[in-house]
Design a protein around this nucleic acid. Structure first.
Length: 429
RNA sequence: GUGGCAGUAGCUCAGCUGGUUAGAGCGCCUGACUGUGGAUCAGGAGGUCGAGGGUUCGAAUCCCUCCCGCCACCCCA
C-alpha cells in the first residue's frame, strides 16, 4: 500500500522554511499594527451565497474555482477563496463601524481555490491583508497602499512595481462599459472565443485579454467616462502617493477579477516570480460590497498579498530573519552523566539559554559531532565525575577551548560565549 | 478546465537501441577511538525505479490509464 500522499495543490511548511515564513507574517503584522490595524480571524468556510453575491457570480473564482460542499444539515458552504467578504461580514455583523470609523483590521490565513496548480499557485495558499472599513476617502486608499508598500520596504524586497488604476463609480463604469461595447461590437468577428463571451458577460474583462492585445491597445480608456468627482478622487490618491514617495505606474488596463471594486484598484507586480504568476498581491476600494451582502451601504478599501509569492521573493533576494539565537548542546556521558545532564539542561533553560539535551546511550564523540554539525555554539559535557562534583565541562565549539566549572556558574560563563559571533545564516531551501 | 514536458535511495543525479543481483556523490548509522567534534579510512542501512495494468522469454527502459510536479494557456495570490 503506497503511503498517504499530500493532496494536490497543497503544501507542508517544514522546519527549514518556517523561520522565513514566520518572519514574513510577523513583519506584516508589525507594519500593519504600526498603522493601527488590529487582528481579526474569520471562518475558513462561509455561506456559498456570500461569494456568489459578493465576489461575483460572473468571476472565474466563483464560476470554477470554489471548493464548495453541503454540510449534513444541507447548508451550502464554501472554503473561503478570498478574505475580504468574510472580514467585511464579520465587522459589519458586529457593528464595529458604529464604534469608530474607519475600522482598521488585518488578517492572515489560508485561502482555497481550485485552479490548476503551478509554481506560485496552489489549491490552498495563504494571504495576508487588511481592510479599512467605513470611510470613503482617497486618503484611506492611499494609506492602504502605503502599508503594502512599507511592508515590502521593511522586508527589503526590491523590484516591486505598483500598478494603479481607477474604475470610478458605478455610473462611470456603466458609461465606460458602453464605450467599450461601442468599440468592440464591430470587431466581434476578430475576437477570440473567450472575448466573445466576455463581451456578453463582463465587458471590462476584455481588457484582460493577452491574445487580443492589439485590439486592447486600441480600446478606449476609462478617463473620459469618469465623472469630475471620480477624476478628482483618483487625482487625490495619486497626489498622496507622490507625497509619500511611493512610485506608481498608471495602468488603465488593470481590471481586477472580482466584481466589487470601485474607484482605486492596484496590484503589486514582480517580474522574477516563477510561472505566469507575476502578481504579489492587489487590492482597492469596494464600496458596493456591503450592500450586496445585505448590510447597510458601507465604503471600504483594502488589499491581499500572497504569502507564498512574497516568501519566494524573499528567498530569491536572500532576505530573511536574523539568525536564530545561539544554543548549547548538553551531552551526558554514561548513565549517571545522562541523568545529571538533564538537570543541567533544565538549569540553563531557567537561566534563559537555549539548551538541547542529548542523553542517549551513545559515544561522546558521536554526540559532539552531531552537536557541532547541527550548529551548537557550545557543548556542555556531564559525566560521572562531573555529576559527583556538581560541575560541568563546557567547550566552545568554534574555538575548541574547554574548561570546567561549577554548575551554578555555568549559565554565566556560557552566556558570554553565546553572545559572541553570530551563527551563520540558516540555509536557504 | 485545455495543451506540452517530467517522475530512479533522505538530497543531486547516472543507468547506451528492453538483457543477470539498479549505481555514484553528498547525507545518515557503525567501527578504527568504553569520556572529546568538524579530517581520514573501513563497513552498513536505506529503492515494490510515482501507482496500476499491458506487450515480451525478460521492463527503470516500450504501450495505456491514473496520481503528482513543472511549463504555457485561463486566471490570479
Amino acid at each position: 500500500m503506497p503511503p498517504i500522499a499530500r493532496p494536490r495543490g497543497t503544501n507542508d511548511l517544514l522546519p527549514a522554511d518556517a523561520p522565513l515564513w514566520e518572519w514574513v507574517l510577523g513583519t506584516h503584522a508589525e507594519v500593519a499594527a504600526g498603522h493601527g490595524y488590529d487582528l481579526v480571524e474569520t471562518p475558513l468556510f462561509e455561506a456559498t451565497e456570500m461569494y456568489e453575491r459578493g465576489t461575483g457570480a460572473g468571476t472565474d473564482v466563483v464560476e470554477k474555482e470554489m471548493f464548495s460542499f453541503t454540510d449534513r444539515g444541507g447548508r451550502a458552504l464554501t472554503l473561503r477563496p478570498e478574505g475580504t467578504p468574510g472580514v467585511l461580514r464579520a465587522v459589519l455583523a458586529a457593528h464595529l463601524e458604529q464604534e469608530r470609523r474607519p475600522v482598521r483590521v488585518r488578517y492572515a490565513g489560508p485561502m482555497f481555490r481550485y485552479a490548476r496548480p503551478q509554481a506560485g499557485r496552489y489549491h490552498e495558499f495563504w494571504q495576508l491583508g487588511l481592510e479599512a472599513i467605513g470611510e470613503r476617502s482617497p486618503e484611506l486608499d492611499a494609506e492602504v497602499i502605503e502599508v503594502a508598500w512599507r511592508f515590502h520596504e521593511r522586508l527589503g524586497v526590491t523590484g516591486v512595481s505598483l500598478q494603479l488604476n481607477t474604475l470610478g463609480e458605478l455610473e462611470d463604469r456603466l458609461r465606460y462599459r458602453a464605450a467599450l461595447l461601442d468599440h468592440y461590437r464591430p470587431l466581434r468577428d476578430r475576437l477570440c472565443e473567450d472575448c466573445r463571451r466576455r463581451l456578453e458577460v463582463n465587458p471590462l474583462r476584455l481588457l484582460d485579454c493577452k491574445r487580443d492585445a492589439a485590439l486592447v491597445a486600441e480600446a478606449p480608456e476609462i478617463g473620459p467616462s469618469l465623472s469630475p468627482e471620480s477624476t478628482a478622487f483618483f487625482a487625490r490618491v495619486r497626489e498622496l502617493l507622490d507625497g509619500a514617495g511611493i512610485p506608481h505606474t498608471l495602468n488603465p488596463r488593470l481590471v481586477r477579477g472580482l466584481d466589487y471594486y470601485a474607484h482605486t484598484t492596484f496590484e503589486l507586480w514582480h517580474e522574477s516570480l516563477r510561472g505566469a504568476q507575476n502578481a504579489v498581491g492587489g487590492g482597492g476600494r469596494y464600496d458596493g460590497l456591503a450592500e450586496v451582502l445585505g448590510f447597510p451601504p458601507t465604503p471600504a478599501t483594502g488589499y491581499a498579498l500572497g504569502v507564498e509569492r512574497t516568501v519566494a521573493l524573499c528567498r530569491e533576494q536572500g532576505l530573511g530573519p536574523n539568525p536564530a539565537p545561539a544554543w548549547v548542546a548538553v551531552l551526558g556521558i554514561g548513565a549517571a552523566g545522562n541523568r545529571a545532564a538533564a538537570q543541567v539542561a533544565r538549569e540553563l533553560r531557567r537561566a534563559g539559554l537555549r539548551a538541547l539535551l542529548d542523553a542517549a546511550e551513545r559515544r561522546l564523540d558521536r554526540k559532539l559531532a552531531a552537536a557541532s554539525r547541527q550548529g551548537a555554539r557550545a557543548a556542555v559535557m556531564v559525566g560521572e565525575e562531573e555529576a559527583a562534583r556538581g560541575t560541568a565541562t563546557w567547550k566552545d565549539l568554534s574555538s575548541g577551548t574547554q574548561r570546567a566549572c561549577a554548575v551554578d556558574r555555568l549559565a554565566g560563563e556560557l552566556a558570554g560565549v553565546l553572545e559572541g559571533a553570530p551563527v551563520p545564516a540558516g540555509g536557504e531551501g
